Lab assay of single mutants.
Amino acid sequence: MIVFVRFNSSHGFPVEVDSDTSIFQLKEVVAKRQGVPADQLRVIFAGKELRNDWTVQNCDLDQQSIVHIVQRPWRKGQEMNATGGDDPRNAAGGCEREPQSLTRVDLSSSVLPGDSVGLAVILHTDSRKDSPPAGSPAGRSIYNSFYVYCKGPCQRVQPGKLRVQCSTCRQATLTLTQGPSCWDDVLIPNRMSGECQSPHCPGTSAEFFFKCGAHPTSDKETSVALHLIATNSRNITCITCTDVRSPVLVFQCNSRHVICLDCFHLYCVTRLNDRQFVHDPQLGYSLPCVAGCPNSLIKELHHFRILGEEQYNRYQQYGAEECVLQMGGVLCPRPGCGAGLLPEPDQRKVTCEGGNGLGCGFAFCRECKEAYHEGECSAVFEASGTTTQAYRVDERAAEQARWEAASKETIKKTTKPCPRCHVPVEKNGGCMHMKCPQPQCRLEWCWNCGCEWNRVCMGDHWFDV
Rank of each mutant, 00 (worst) to 15 (best):
V111G: 11
G284P: 01
L162V: 08
L174W: 04
E300T: 07
N81T: 14
N90W: 09
V148E: 01
L358E: 15
Q71F: 04
S205R: 10
E309D: 15
M432D: 02
Q63L: 04
L341C: 12
G94I: 12
E452W: 15
C150T: 00
I306S: 05
T55N: 06
G354M: 10
V105Y: 13
R72S: 14
R314V: 03
L228S: 05
H11C: 05
G84P: 13
P417G: 10
M327I: 08
D62Y: 09
G385E: 09
I66W: 06
N295P: 00
E374I: 06
S296R: 00
R72G: 11
G355W: 09
L187Y: 04
A91C: 07
H461A: 00
G284K: 03
L283W: 08
C293W: 00
E221N: 07
V290T: 07
V465Q: 15
I69A: 08
D62P: 14
Q63N: 15
C201W: 01
W74C: 13
V56N: 00
Y391W: 15
E207K: 07
I236S: 06
D126L: 07
T388I: 13
L272W: 00
S218E: 13
V186C: 06
F13W: 05
S22E: 06
E28F: 02
V105N: 14
H422Q: 07
N235G: 14
T386G: 10
C212D: 01
C446T: 00
D219R: 07
Q71H: 07
N356L: 07
R72C: 14
S296W: 03
Y267H: 05
R191Q: 08
E426R: 07
K211T: 14
G35Y: 03
F210L: 09
H11W: 05
R33D: 04
A401S: 09
Q389G: 14
P343Q: 07
S10N: 13
P281H: 08
D18P: 08
F362E: 05
T55P: 04
N454C: 05
V30I: 07
L331C: 05
I2V: 14
V380Q: 06
Y149N: 02
K151D: 15
R305H: 08
C95A: 13
Y149G: 01
K48V: 04
G284N: 05
L123V: 11
G385H: 07
D464K: 15
H215T: 00
V164Q: 06
E370W: 04
D460A: 15
L331D: 03
